[in-house]
């Protein structure tokens, strides 16, 4: 499973009414890599995640995970294929406890999960002490981690994180970066949508810059800042 291509996005088109949010976008994400999806507001980054997760239907194009075509499957079916996604706005179930949230993230009854799995995940996201607190009572940063824990619990092949450090303090940001680095595994691909370039530099192996629904640049982080078109899009206007 390790190495090789995990997720292929092929000729994706998405329209909202007359507005074309994603325009013939093609991407290939490999196992073992952390891929950052960056670009200005409205570039279509979140839309791509929504389409992969099955929330937004595509007008044209295909999404393939390993050899399985995900196009047209429901959100739940896609999730069960091993795709998990963290939303931009932290969305945890506030009236359930932290432990129950993680348990829901397993997607199978806790009794059938590997023993100690919930505790492992709780420890991984640093919420072991708060396991019986109601999720609604957590601080913003803790909610972000809980949500990462929820999407992590089922050991997904594809992990999509939409702005995981938005609204976090510097210290929380550092811990989140460390967490994501720790999550990198040969049999997992991680996609991060983020505005914070410093954060992206810390975690990403490879960067895809989107602009107006298309790929503007793709390559290692080190070369992004030298790319003339990227500079123009980010700074030139």
């Amino acid at each position: 499973m390790s190495g090789g291509t995990a997720l292929v996005i092929d000729g994706l088109e998405v329209e909202f009414g007359r507005f074309r949010a994603v325009d013939r976008l093609s991407l290939a994400i490999d196992y073992g890599e952390v891929r950052a999806l960056i670009g200005p507001n409205g570039a279509g980054k979140s839309t791509v995640l929504n389409v992969v997760a099955g929330v937004t239907p595509a007008k044209a194009g295909r999404i393939v995970l390993d050899d399985t075509d995900l196009t047209g499957l429901s959100e739940a079916q896609i999730a069960r294929k091993g795709v998990r996604r963290k939303f931009q706005k932290p969305s945890v179930f506030e009236v359930l406890t932290v432990r129950e949230n993680i348990e829901l993230g397993l997607a199978i009854p806790a009794a059938k999960a590997p023993p100690g799995r919930i505790e492992d995940v709780l420890a991984m996201v640093n919420l072991g002490d708060l396991a019986d607190r109601l999720a609604g009572t957590l601080a913003h940063g803790q909610k972000q981690w809980l949500e990462i824990g929820m999407v992590l619990a089922s050991d997904p092949k594809i992990l999509m994180l939409d702005e995981p450090v938005a609204g976090l303090t510097d210290e929380e940001r550092q811990r989140t970066a460390a967490l994501i680095r720790a999550l990198r595994r040969p049999d997992r691909a991680i996609v991060v949508v983020e505005h914070d370039m410093g954060f992206v530099e810390e975690i990403a192996d490879k960067v895809t810059v989107m602009h107006e629904g298309r790929t503007l640049f793709e390559g290692p982080m080190s070369r992004v800042r030298q790319d003339a078109r990227v500079v123009e899009v980010y700074l030139g206007r």
Binding site: A53, V55, S74, E75, A76, Q77, A79, R80, R84, R85, F87, S91, V92, F93, E94, V95, L96, E100, E103, L104, G105, A107, P109, A110, M150, V151, S154
Partner: peptide, 24 residues
């Protein structure tokens, strides 16, 4: 029960629940 927790989860954030692999 666990079903009850899923009900509450579906009530509060159905999209989240579906994205965790539950058909609501």
């Amino acid at each position: 029960s666990r079903t009850g927790r899923m009900m509450v989860a579906a009530r509060d954030d159905e999209v989240r629940l579906r994205s965790l692999g539950y058909g609501t």
